[in-house]
Amino acid sequence: MNESLHVSSQFDEDLGRLRTHVLQMGGLVETQISAAIDAYTTGEVASVKTIVETDRKVNDLEKAIDDDCAHIIAKRQPTASDLRLVLGISKIVTDLERAGDEAKKIAKGVRRIYEAGHMPAQYGVGIRHLAEAALTMVRQALDAFARLDGTLAVSVIRADADVDVEFKSIIRQLITHMMEDPRTITTSIDIISISRAIERIGDHAKNISEQVIFVVEGRDIRHNKEAIK
Rank of each mutant, 00 (worst) to 15 (best):
V110H: 03
H118R: 13
T136M: 15
A99E: 01
E62W: 03
I127R: 01
Q77E: 09
A46I: 07
P120V: 06
G117A: 13
V93C: 02
T50Y: 13
L96N: 00
V125W: 00
N59C: 12
A80T: 11
E115Y: 04
A131V: 03
R111T: 11
V125A: 05
A116V: 01
A133Y: 01
A121W: 10
V48Q: 11
Q32M: 15
Q32D: 14
D95Q: 12
A64F: 07
S81T: 09
C69S: 09
A116L: 05
D55H: 11
E62L: 04
D101R: 05
K49M: 04
A116M: 05
I127N: 00
P120C: 10
R112C: 08
V110T: 09
S34A: 07
N59Y: 08
A70G: 08
K75A: 15
Q122P: 04
H71S: 13
H129C: 02
E97C: 09
K108I: 08
D67Y: 07
G117L: 09
R84G: 02
D60P: 05
K104C: 08
K49C: 02
A80N: 15
I92R: 00
I65C: 02
A36C: 09
A133T: 06
L85Q: 01
D60A: 12
V110C: 12
G124F: 12
G100H: 03
